[in-house]
Amino acid sequence: MNVGLEHYLVVSALLFSLGLLGVLVRRNLLVIYMSLELMLNSANLALVAFSRFNNNLNGQVMVFFIITVAAAEVAVGLALIVALYRKHQTAHVEDLTTMKL
């Protein structure tokens, strides 16, 4: 059986689920952030697969933009984590309860 669009979509969906599991289960801010990257990457994979199997390059341009925005987002997010760590000396989500009522 030839590998088609569905195979790539299954891989993408599984990878997205893994990322979601990481965001929900892990309690370290940095690992949560890495899981977010995993989810973004799975969306990229789905877009590239769609672009390939529909003979349309717009999906790949979209992935290019997603990678760029993700790089900017990682830089800002990590700067926020560093600033937070400097204030509270922790990168553990259960210790960050400043906004709790």
Partner: peptide, 27 residues
């Protein structure tokens, strides 16, 4: 590698350069 299989050679290179290079070094 999956991107290469999908014939997205440029994106595969960008993926390695930007993600595995820049972003992970930052992490």
């Amino acid at each position: 590698g999956l991107f290469v299989l999908l014939h997205a050679f440029f994106l595969a290179a960008v993926q390695i350069l930007v993600y595995a290079g820049a972003v992970m070094v930052l992490f």
